[in-house]
Every structure is written in C-alpha cells, then in structure tokens.
Simulated scan of single mutants.
Amino acid sequence: MNTPVYNTAEMQKRVDDYISQFKEGYFSPLSQVARLTEEVGELAREVNHYHGEKPKKQSEKEKTIEEELGDILFVLSCFANSLDVDLSEAFHIAINKIETRDKNRWTKKGK
C-alpha cells in the first residue's frame, strides 16, 4: 500500500474538508484539549505495553503506536483548524525557540 505523504497544510486541509461536511463542525477548544489529552493517554498506554513493564492483556484490542500518533495528529489538526492556527508556522516558532534556547544544552556528537 502506498501511503500518501502530507505536509502540515495538506493535513489541515484534509481534516477541514472532512469536518466541514458536518453541521456540528469542530468541537469547542476545551473539548478538543480533553480529546487530545485522551489520545495522548492512549499513546502512553501503548508505549507502556511495547516498551514498559505492563504487557497487554489477551482481551485487549491490538493497537499500534503509529495508530495512536495518527490519532493525535488528527485531533491536533482539528484543534489548530478551529483556532485558525497554521501548524507549520507553530512548528517553525517552536523549533526556532528550541534551537536557540537549547543549542548548548546537550552534548553534540563528534564528526
């Protein structure tokens, strides 16, 4: 299966195209933060199952870290769209801050 590659603008548009077909539209910002928190919790559970000390019960549905990360990206895109935030610009601001603030924080690898 060839998985399409999306940049953040394409992701946000695809999410908006999907949400825009429903009268209800986007959830309120508070509901979306709650939903994002829920999805991050599901990711944490999967990480714990695969990399931690808590194996899955045999009765638990098989999920993957990839699936949970995808759910987070979807909810994050919904949240950004509802507040008219460009995720690409938000990332640009964040990475510039991190690269400036933390440029000497970690030990660089030798060449």
Score class of each variant (00 low, 15 high):
residue 60 E to V: 06
residue 55 P to S: 15
residue 58 Q to F: 04
residue 106 W to T: 15
residue 96 N to M: 10
residue 34 A to S: 03
residue 48 N to H: 08
residue 21 Q to P: 10
residue 68 E to C: 05
residue 33 V to K: 01
residue 87 L to G: 03
residue 6 Y to F: 14
residue 43 L to R: 12
residue 77 S to M: 07
residue 54 K to N: 13
residue 6 Y to V: 06
residue 25 G to P: 09
residue 107 T to A: 07
residue 102 D to N: 13
residue 88 S to Q: 05
residue 8 T to Y: 05
residue 1 M to G: 04
residue 41 G to D: 04
residue 69 L to N: 04
residue 42 E to F: 08
residue 67 E to V: 07
residue 16 D to G: 10
residue 20 S to H: 14
residue 44 A to T: 13
residue 76 L to W: 03
residue 17 D to C: 07
residue 64 T to W: 00
residue 43 L to N: 12
residue 14 R to T: 14
residue 82 S to T: 12
residue 31 S to D: 02
residue 59 S to A: 03
residue 81 N to V: 10
residue 13 K to H: 10
residue 21 Q to L: 12
residue 53 E to I: 10
residue 92 H to C: 03
residue 2 N to G: 04
residue 36 L to Q: 00
residue 44 A to Q: 13
residue 31 S to P: 00
residue 104 N to K: 11
residue 13 K to Y: 03
residue 6 Y to Q: 09
residue 43 L to W: 11
residue 18 Y to V: 15
residue 89 E to N: 04
residue 50 Y to V: 13
residue 38 E to T: 02
residue 16 D to R: 15
residue 4 P to V: 09
residue 107 T to K: 11
residue 70 G to K: 11
residue 12 Q to Y: 00
residue 24 E to P: 03
residue 78 C to R: 08
residue 9 A to N: 04
residue 93 I to F: 08
residue 104 N to E: 12
residue 11 M to R: 12
residue 16 D to L: 12
residue 18 Y to G: 12
residue 12 Q to D: 04
residue 49 H to E: 13
residue 73 L to P: 01
residue 31 S to E: 05
residue 50 Y to S: 11
residue 43 L to P: 12
residue 61 K to M: 14
residue 14 R to G: 10
residue 23 K to T: 15
residue 35 R to V: 09
residue 83 L to T: 13
residue 18 Y to E: 12
residue 39 E to H: 01
residue 20 S to T: 15
residue 98 I to V: 05
residue 72 I to P: 03
residue 27 F to M: 12
residue 38 E to K: 02
residue 7 N to S: 03
residue 87 L to W: 03
residue 40 V to D: 00
residue 26 Y to M: 12
residue 64 T to P: 03
residue 10 E to Y: 00
residue 41 G to M: 05
residue 64 T to K: 02
residue 93 I to H: 11
residue 6 Y to N: 08
residue 9 A to R: 04
residue 79 F to D: 00
residue 61 K to R: 15
residue 24 E to C: 12
residue 52 G to Y: 07
residue 100 T to C: 02
residue 56 K to C: 06
residue 16 D to A: 15
residue 52 G to Q: 07
residue 43 L to A: 14
residue 9 A to P: 01
residue 11 M to Y: 08
residue 4 P to T: 06
residue 26 Y to Q: 10
residue 30 L to W: 02
residue 18 Y to A: 14
residue 35 R to W: 11
residue 67 E to P: 04
residue 42 E to A: 06
residue 58 Q to I: 07
residue 60 E to K: 04
residue 108 K to D: 10
residue 93 I to C: 07
residue 56 K to T: 08
residue 78 C to Q: 13
residue 111 K to H: 10
residue 91 F to S: 08
residue 35 R to L: 15
residue 105 R to M: 12
residue 36 L to P: 01
residue 91 F to A: 08
residue 88 S to W: 01
residue 70 G to C: 13
residue 29 P to L: 01
residue 16 D to N: 14
residue 45 R to G: 13
residue 95 I to R: 09
residue 85 V to G: 05
residue 66 E to L: 13
residue 52 G to N: 09
residue 67 E to F: 08
residue 91 F to D: 09
residue 62 E to D: 06
residue 94 A to L: 08
residue 74 F to R: 12
residue 64 T to L: 01
residue 16 D to S: 14
residue 68 E to P: 05
